[in-house]
Nucleic acid binder design. Structure first.
Lengths: 190, 190
DNA sequence: TATGCTAGAGAACGAACGTTCTCGATGCAA
DNA sequence: TTGCATCGAGAACGTTCGTTCTCTAGCATA
């Protein structure tokens, strides 16, 4: 088996299992079975479980960014692109295996003891903040709008995960729409 | 030593350690040292670690409710009481040992494998939702305001925890103020 | 066929966990 | 003082984890 495909098999299985059950709950033995890659080869490709976790989180961040961007491309206006974030969340929340934001979950699980996990969560949230801030500026809104929209997205993810219902996406979208309108009309007044 | 005080010592120490480092990361041996209660006595008072976790979460929920209510009592109007939520968060976020919402963290850590932990998180979030909904109704707002305000509070907690900065409380408060005003003026128009 | 090489299955290892057990010390009733 | 119950410290137990090691089967090459 090719090294590259083995790497991918391991990371795919790790992502699925870690997201569904938590990182600590999934041992290397179970990962090996799910990936179909021997333990020996796995340790040839990755020096430790920590590194697998790190790379899984990096892939998750890329997938998130791609998903958000793909949804935004369907919308012509900055306002539409901002609201597309919540449409993206809405689609995600109804998926069978949705279990919240992987970064929030892994931060809660390992953030206090594993600095690389905490850093990955910070990086992810910072890059999302930057994305929203760029869109908000493009829309002509003052700089305090973006952090507010981010809070709605974060809150929607945790609420949908814990309560197990997807309603939070619609609530977040409605609130975001209100905040955007208020922000733009306020900036027009000055 | 009195049983009641021993119980309290154990739960106090467990709460502190679990919150700071995560539940799985804290063993019974460390808990015993921190609490100053022997392992034997601890297992006389609690049948298992799971039960300790359960009671710690219950106490956390009570403390949260008391804190929110105490802040609300300082405000005469429903609108003020709603915004007091974010003042409460603001005070909390700047505390040295703030590390996010214990329920979100423990849900991320154990929600997938420990049903009682997942249920405790659900109960906590539901009771908070109900509290906000009652206040919003008292303020004369339509029923879609409360879930939006809740999302801001949840998002602020995770954002402040992961980024390590307390700014999220102020952003949430400003957004909440905007949403309340928009909601009340909209309901007056109908 | 003989020989080296690779790779996978799973045993092995040391550490850490939750939980129970042992043992010696202590305090108190008679 | 003696006997007895209680208690804490920490050893012990069985399990699970991450990681490494062993052993065997298969395969390419001479």
């Amino acid at each position: 088996m090719d090294d590259a495909t083995a790497r991918e098999l391991v990371l795919d299985a790790a992502d699925r299992l870690y997201y569904r059950r938590g990182i600590t709950a999934v041992g290397m033995d179970e990962l090996r079975t799910a990936a179909g890659v021997s333990l020996k080869k796995t340790y040839q490709l990755f020096p430790s479980k920590d590194v697998i976790v790190e790379q899984v989180l990096r892939r998750r961040n890329n997938a998130w960014t791609r998903g958000i961007l793909a949804r935004a491309e369907l919308e012509p206006t900055p306002r539409g692109k901002l609201l597309a974030i919540y449409d993206f969340l809405s689609d995600w929340f109804v998926e069978d295996d949705f279990r919240g934001c992987a970064f929030i979950n892994s931060f809660g699980e390992l953030g206090a003891t594993a600095p690389t996990v905490a850093q990955a969560a910070r990086d992810h949230k910072n890059s999302f903040q930057a994305y929203v801030a760029a869109l908000a500026q493009e829309a002509g809104a003052p700089s305090n709008l973006a952090p507010q929209l981010v809070l709605l997205a974060e809150g929607a993810q945790t609420t949908a995960a814990i309560l197990g219902t997807p309603d939070a996406a619609a609530h977040a979208r409605a609130a975001a729409s209100t905040l955007i309108d208020a922000s733009l009309s306020a900036s027009r007044r000055h």
